[in-house]
């Protein structure tokens, strides 16, 4: 059984707790003496076999879509020949069809995602500061209410969101249905419920003595908030901003309900509609669109991996 040589039962293992999440072992293990092959295989070699199997499973769809995007055949069938031919025609086609405004989708997604991320961070940091640092009547009630609200994901109310937005749009067309500002506002409505708790927990880890020292030195609440607390919790701000960005950019339901015109839509809505019309024929162009759409989230994720993972686990446990 696989567990026979579990390293954690090995007392000599110098592995330390924390750093492995991000893959940086704090202390390099002492170079082990070379083991004979059967022993090496029993102890570590089979792990590489598992690793290779998992590498194929994890990476294959990504390799496949990259290959399909570079394959000039452009259909689902030709995409099966991995890396048989190579040119950038699909990427050129992606930007040249006016019925499929990929450039607009990309920019829209970016703008909506960034605006929502910034708004979310600001709104939930303000609220978390109040809950963490101030004692006021209704504080416990407020926290409890947020917990309750958190139970009802905004996603579930999309029918009501659609009807509300169309009612707003009758009176203020720039905020209603088919408006990106309106969509951002809808997303911000979900900001407080989801993120305040996560942030509240982190604000609590900043010792209150820091605030008090600043207060004695004559700093006001705003100065303490902006120049001291926010700096100290910067990593969690980045995490929440990034999680919000990733969540917003991959949202399909609300975006598809609110945005109507093709040139106003986001990547999730536009690409889905495009590829669901004629999957087989449009495959190459879709693959190119998918590769471009994925570069930014994947890059950000790998770059900030350590923070994201700590935020994910800590936040949910809190």
């Amino acid at each position: 059984m696989a567990l026979n040589s579990n390293p954690l039962t090995d007392a000599s293992a110098p592995e330390l707790a924390r750093g492995v999440v991000d893959g940086t072992a704090p202390a390099a293990p002492a170079p082990a003496p070379r083991r004979p092959f059967p022993r090496w295989f029993r102890e570590t070699g089979w792990r590489h076999l598992v690793g290779i199997v998992m590498l194929v499973f994890a990476a294959f769809p990504l390799v496949y879509v990259l290959s399909a995007s570079l394959n000039p055949g452009g259909t689902l069938l030709t995409a099966n020949g991995l890396f048989q031919s190579f040119n950038l025609q699909n990427y050129v086609d992606l930007f040249t069809d006016p019925t499929r405004p990929y450039g607009n989708w990309f920019v829209n997604t970016l703008v909506i995602g960034v605006a929502t991320a910034i708004g979310t961070v600001v709104l939930s940091a303000l609220a978390a500061y109040a809950f963490s640092r101030m004692r006021f009547t209704g504080r416990r009630f407020g926290l409890l209410t947020l917990l309750l609200v958190q139970m009802f994901p905004q996603l579930l109310a999309f029918v009501a969101i659609f009807l509300l937005m169309s009612a707003i749009g009758d009176i203020f067309p720039f905020l209603g249905l088919n408006s990106q500002i309106g969509l951002i506002m809808v997303y911000l409505g979900g900001a407080l419920g989801v993120n305040t708790f996560l942030m509240y927990g982190f604000f609590n880890t900043v010792p209150a003595s820091i605030d008090e020292a600043a207060k004695i030195d004559g700093a006001g609440h705003a100065r303490i908030f902006f120049t001291i607390i926010l700096r100290l919790v910067a990593p969690i701000l980045a995490v929440i901003g990034l999680l919000s960005f990733i969540g917003t950019t991959s949202d399909f339901v609300i975006a598809s309900v609110v945005l109507v015109d093709p040139e106003k839509q986001t990547l999730a809505v536009g690409l889905y509609q495009f590829v669901s019309q004629e999957t087989a024929r449009n495959w190459g162009v879709f693959a190119a669109g998918a590769v471009l759409a994925a570069i930014l989230p994947v890059g950000l994720f790998l770059w900030l991996q350590r923070y994201i993972v700590s935020g994910l686990t800590a936040g949910s446990v809190k």
Binding site: S124, F136, V186, L192
Partner: peptide, 23 residues
């Protein structure tokens, strides 16, 4: 003070989360 920090978020919360659920 608490209200100064909570109001912006609460307005969005009420309109686009609590109200839509009730709606």
């Amino acid at each position: 003070l608490p209200a100064k920090y909570l109001t912006p978020g609460l307005i969005f919360l009420f309109v686009f989360q609590i109200f839509v659920v009730l709606y």
